[in-house]
Design a protein around this nucleic acid. Sequence first.
DNA 1: AACACAAACTAACACTTGTTAGTTTATTTG
DNA 2: CAAATAAACTAACAAGTGTTAGTTTGTGTT
Lengths: 189, 189
Amino acid sequence: MKTETRKNEIITTAAKLFKEKGFSAVTMRDIATEMGIKAASLYNHINSKQEILKEIIISLAEEFTQGMELIYNSKYNSLDKLSQIIALHVTITNNNTPGMASLNNDWMHLEEHLNYYLKLRNNYEATFLSIIKEGVSSSEIKKVNPEIVMFTMLSTLRSLYLWIPKKEDLNANDLANNLSTILIQGINK
Amino acid sequence: MKTETRKNEIITTAAKLFKEKGFSAVTMRDIATEMGIKAASLYNHINSKQEILKEIIISLAEEFTQGMELIYNSKYNSLDKLSQIIALHVTITNNNTPGMASLNNDWMHLEEHLNYYLKLRNNYEATFLSIIKEGVSSSEIKKVNPEIVMFTMLSTLRSLYLWIPKKEDLNANDLANNLSTILIQGINK
DNA sequence: AACACAAACTAACACTTGTTAGTTTATTTG
DNA sequence: CAAATAAACTAACAAGTGTTAGTTTGTGTT
């Protein structure tokens, strides 16, 4: 595809603005102005505002699905799998912070692609949950409510997009290690 | 004030819609339709769409500020204070889930009241952080990065509005206790 | 009966929205 | 040079936006 480069510039610019104000509050004129062109010119490269959102969110969701599948099918124990899930989130978020903001906050505006997105998300969470339950069964993990464990971890991981840009001194590896320690070992001495 | 009741109905209805689609995607006509009246009628009770958002967010932010002040000045040890912060979030969120969605996702649209909101939030986080640092100093808490600890806890607590409505079987007390265990003791057996 | 008032209404406004059509400009390719 | 193509432009649209003005309706109080 020839226009792929310019199209990607639009998507990147849009994602940055979507992160700041949300999908609905950003206009096509906002995106165009940010790029130094007119709104109508955007349509030489993209078909609609919706399509921009879809491109941002679906590719990320598929990346997570793929990563989770790999981890689930690996032969590590449950706690190591959880650490790898943490690393997966840190890596993806580190590569595309603005996109993660849209994934978290604007998925409900996907319209035609909403069902597909929800399918991926439900599948992701079901696999995540089953890894935790395996850990409880094998006595690696305390007898705690597995859903609350997943909720705690996912909440933290889904918020990474807010914190990573504010802490540029922390590298991705250190952050992943710190999070593993805190989430798995707790903070009590 | 006499019209306080009707005004509160508008705010409650708006908060519910804001939770589903976000502030910017909800129109005054949406809110009115949900209440079975016309958009113009809303203006007998409120001054602007902005004002609705302000009423939702600022009152919650002040509630958190007040609760945090109480906990900070109490004579409990650091870990107990952290448990109380968890309970504070569970209680407030349990009482107003839709409002918490706006607080988390739509604060950037506060405009005139944005600076005041940010002041409250910065103050809240600074106090939170100092409680964690005290715990590290007094050796109650492991030598971990205090900011990452706060980030982990706050991410989880700020996401409660998403999970509480889905788990009506869990009562507030159980949830707070479970979260305290997981966040403070960890999940490793 | 007369009045006050909360709360709804209709109609309209000025502006913003996403998007389309048709055209121009500059660069690359044959 | 000629042709093709990428990428910008101007102008305009139909629909939707928050909001205002002025009016009507119903209910309770003097």
